[in-house]
Nucleic acid binder design. Sequence first.
DNA 1: GGCGTCTCTGTTAACGCTAACAAAAATTGG
DNA 2: CCAATTTTTGTTAGCGTTAACAGAGACGCC
Lengths: 335, 335
Amino acid sequence: MAVHGPAMTDVARLAGVSHQTVSRVLNGHPNVREQTRLRVRAAIAELGYRPNGAARALVTGRSQVIGVVAQNTTLYGPASLLAALEQTAAQEGFAVSVGSVRNLDHRSISAAVERHLSHRVAGIVVIAPVESAGEALERLPKDVPLVTVDGDPSRPVPLVTVDQVAGARAATQHLLDAGHRTVWHVSGPTDWFDSVGRIDGWRQALLAAGLDPPPPMPGDWSAASGYRCGQMLARMPEVTAVFTANDHLALGVLRALHEFGRRVPHEISVVGFDDVPEAAYFIPPLTTVRPDFDAVARASLQMLLSQIESGTAGALRQTVAPALVSRDSVAPPPR
Amino acid sequence: MAVHGPAMTDVARLAGVSHQTVSRVLNGHPNVREQTRLRVRAAIAELGYRPNGAARALVTGRSQVIGVVAQNTTLYGPASLLAALEQTAAQEGFAVSVGSVRNLDHRSISAAVERHLSHRVAGIVVIAPVESAGEALERLPKDVPLVTVDGDPSRPVPLVTVDQVAGARAATQHLLDAGHRTVWHVSGPTDWFDSVGRIDGWRQALLAAGLDPPPPMPGDWSAASGYRCGQMLARMPEVTAVFTANDHLALGVLRALHEFGRRVPHEISVVGFDDVPEAAYFIPPLTTVRPDFDAVARASLQMLLSQIESGTAGALRQTVAPALVSRDSVAPPPR
DNA sequence: GGCGTCTCTGTTAACGCTAACAAAAATTGG
DNA sequence: CCAATTTTTGTTAGCGTTAACAGAGACGCC
């Protein structure tokens, strides 16, 4: 059974000081004589002492842990975000506790948040891309530092988000610039803010060009739904350009077009969103929009930490701009 | 600043009992009168009391947190595993703290483990697919419950693993059964046990059929490296069947073959490994091997929990068998 | 040389919980 | 109905850390 490691008093005894002095050394307190500091350091090393986070959390009221609530961490976007978050947090000495959640409904989110709260996390990052998540957040204790990622832009909660609108606009404009008369859109599920933003951006670009947006075709992020939409698009001879809300949808579309003998990009151009690592190896290599997940992670963590340190809940907002990555799936329309 | 929530004594006062009775109710201790239990429950609900995990961890010596050390949580496999682990752990009332790690070298792993240890996690799951990780694990304190996933089969550490050998053998056999004279292999990085196992299985199947295995082509899991190998394979007229160590490699190979005008599956058959959700929408839909990540997660958590509860470090081993998923990328060889 | 002022170190008391023991109340048996 | 038991509850003492305060030297200044 667990033989407990040495505690602060053991270190103190070995170094011939009081435990409080050890604590001071550990926390970088200034008023410790250099010689003492060294002795304590040596004792720590000799015993292999490791401070007890639980005790510290108990007395300070917060742990060095950040709770993350996310939905589908298997998807490329959330997974990247989570990884980046963890990396950044580690640099600041924080651990990351995941609370992934099957559905983004009220109850599940609240439950996940509750779990984090009872572990006394220092702060919470909610990757909350849908409407229902916002409600759960409103009724949260006001004093827990909170940042939402890709959440509801209309709620008074600190928010970091990829500029979906700008990304979608850029993608659409890119197709328009290639000479296409209009651009069709395969969207994500419409209860995701990501989807809504991307639809918006697409529509804006079309409207700005004096074009009448065709009806968006709703998908669910999966290649499967992209395939279904692709089958319809392939049968419509007037379609020459498609912007899909993510790369997996694009993959499905690509496959459907291929099956129907519609060549990409010669007959139809396709642009995706996300720049998954495989996008460059689709057939043909996919032109897409790359959100900077690292930047999002950095921004949200920084926002969270400043809340944790200052104690104030500044209702900030930060958006990071995505970049268009041009590959081979876009060409001028035929004829 | 953080106004602390109610503590156990507050609940006790409201319910008119001692804090210890509250503790007993919380921990499902038997000897509490039904009526008292109800009163305590009511008080808990009224105050919105939430037990303080840190205090509990301090006194019991372990938290309700499981630490996971993983490398690249952006890859489909690790991400799925992590998600499944989290789901399962949540059901048992455990939180999961991720310590992802850029490199799987000695130092990084040790550092991640250290971090978990100082948070007094109840146990650690290491997704340790490479050699160097094993060494770091050897010198770990013996008393911390540990399970490795996809780790070194030759080390005396509790291990759960996908049966890579069987999966690779099935994939290779499937190609042989289709009539191919031999099967080429694009492998993962050779310091990963996953890769080694898959190479083994492939070789075994070939040997069992009395065939001489061609040299495996080493990739690095990415579509990019699959593409490079694919370019070579495309130029070799004798190649009619390829087994790749994962689906992303297969995607790269598929693209290279397509570029060279080598039709899949008519001229060359391809089989992958992992069954990423997109595999069904590759061109053509990819025949692949599906490991059961949920089963792996369940097995490892169960193993870990039994260690935590019993205190014994049973050096168990468990492998879960993957299943072949047959789609359109395999056909008999030409002529 | 006495005295305020630094700098460094030690002492004590929490933090919120569980474990171990002690006491009180309820139950049983004769 | 009283003693012996069993069930239920309360009391006390930590767990390992930080915070607040107190004490001990060292130093400079009048």
